[in-house]
């Protein structure tokens, strides 16, 4: 499955069209409908990836779009798609959900991700190594985990990661590399124990 977000890579025309939609939505919230339809799935997937309860993930997604429609008048175009603004709302709503509802922060991982990490760590794919990887992921700092999830689980380009986390593309690259190094260290620490 290709996880790279197909609607993210906006052309200038697409960005201009989106701007028109936003301008209309600022005057009349009913014009927010095309933006809602465009981003609903990807925002839900972003939230669901980080939660263990699917129904709760739908609730948080609704809350994200409610905040977005309510605050669309405050949105300022800075050359990036509306999506990056929605992701920032989603990130803050997720944190709020973890604080308020005591929902558990989840890390969703599948066989292909495990295989990728084992290849990077030059380790064989065994159950023991898999458990060590899970332990290492669970022990990571939240900021590092976010980078690992965005890059390795969701396969997003560095430019998009930068826009979601409000950092430069190069900085996203460096930070992701460092996060991977720290994951590697945690993995080897668990291997020695």
């Amino acid at each position: 499955m290709n996880r790279v977000n197909p609607i993210y890579h906006h052309t200038r025309k697409m960005l201009a069209d989106e701007q028109k939609c936003i301008a209309l939505a600022k005057n009349d919230p009913r014009h927010f409908a095309p933006l809602y339809e465009k981003y609903h799935e990807q925002i839900f997937r972003y939230i669901n990836q980080r939660m263990d309860d699917q129904d709760l993930a739908f609730d948080v997604t609704s809350q994200v779009f409610f905040k977005a429609i309510k605050n669309i008048h405050k949105f300022e175009f800075r050359g990036v798609p509306l999506g990056s603004w929605l992701y920032r709302i989603a990130k803050s709503e997720l944190n709020q959900a973890f604080r308020n509802r005591k929902a558990k922060r989840a890390i969703n991982i599948d066989e292909t991700h495990v295989a990728t990490f084992m290849e990077v760590f030059q380790q064989e794919e065994s159950r023991r190594n898999r458990d060590r990887l899970f332990k290492a992921l669970a022990e990571m700092r939240e900021t590092d985990l976010q980078l690992i999830e965005l890059r390795y689980f969701e396969e997003r380009p560095y430019r998009e990661i930068g826009e979601i986390l409000s950092i430069k593309e190069n900085n996203a690259k460096v930070k992701t590399f460092r996060a991977l190094e720290r994951l590697k260290l945690l993995f080897y620490k668990n291997k020695r124990e």
Binding site: P29, R30, F32, A33, Y36, E37, H40, E41, F44, R45, N48, D52, Q54, F58, S62, F65, F66, I69, F98, K104, R105, A106, I107, N108, I109, D110, E111, R130, F134, L137, A138, E139
Partner: peptide
């Protein structure tokens, strides 16, 4: 540690996500 690692969880289909879209409710 409050993180839960979930292995090989079923990913919801685009169709099932689309079914939960409700713009009227949002309005």
């Amino acid at each position: 540690n409050r993180r839960k690692v979930i292995f090989n969880r079923t990913v919801p289909s685009s169709r099932s996500i689309k079914e939960r879209e409700d713009f009227d409710q949002l309005l």
